[in-house]
Design a protein around this nucleic acid. Structure first.
Lengths: 106, 106
DNA sequence: ATTTTGAGAAACCAAATAGTTGCACATATA
DNA sequence: TATATGTGCAACTATTTGGTTTCTCAAAAT
């Protein structure tokens, strides 16, 4: 079973969960209130997110608070880095072009 | 059928395709040589990537070159923005802490 | 002590996914 | 013209996914 961060964020419900708990740790029941599906379905998503270490549990009595492991999100950023280089260089090229046009106008 | 950029990059083969054509436009046959699966399987991935406008076709005779639409990749960056804010503020906090410790030492 | 509440696990199901093979069609090449 | 090549599409298959319902268990509340 593939279980990486890219597969984890592929599902819109899981992305919403991530956004919600980024603001504050939440219990499965509290999370489920934000969605149409059952608490068990949310629990499954939480399991997947836990398996790729995007979130961590924090037991408080019989409640379990899930919190985001923000550092794990950086992995996406790292993968994006190679493309950011490309679009930034394109931007530089555009910048140079504009600069050249300005020179010509003078 | 869900068809967004997050679902597109969930598959490791598709991520590899994206990385390959980021460097230079390629034909399905040329791409398929980099993978274990058939040309048709690669073609299916290209279809999915095309459907969410991550790549564009360029017909050259009977060959079709696929090239990356780098701007579309920025959508991931935009989504990441909200979390980048968090990890950067955490970094600032750590920075402040280190600064405070330095002051105490003096 | 009994009942309610919060949560995970198992069994099941429909739909989506990623792959295959076989086919059709257009464009080069002999 | 006949053949080879590059490609997309359709049909089929096994596996994965996302959801459900039911069950169990532990902690809180009555």
């Amino acid at each position: 079973m593939r279980r990486d961060i890219f597969q984890a964020i592929a599902d819109p419900t899981r992305r919403a969960i991530i956004t919600l708990i980024a603001l504050q740790a939440m219990t499965p029941n509290a999370l489920a209130e934000h969605f149409d599906s059952t608490r068990q379905a949310v629990s499954k998503h939480l399991k997947i997110l836990t398996e790729c270490e995007l979130i961590k549990q924090e037991q408080k009595g019989r409640e379990i608070y899930y919190k985001l492991e923000i550092d794990k999100m950086k992995e996406i950023d790292i993968w994006l880095e190679q493309f950011r280089k490309i679009w930034e260089s394109r931007f530089d090229q555009l910048d140079n072009l504009l600069e050249t046009l300005k020179q010509i106008k003078k």
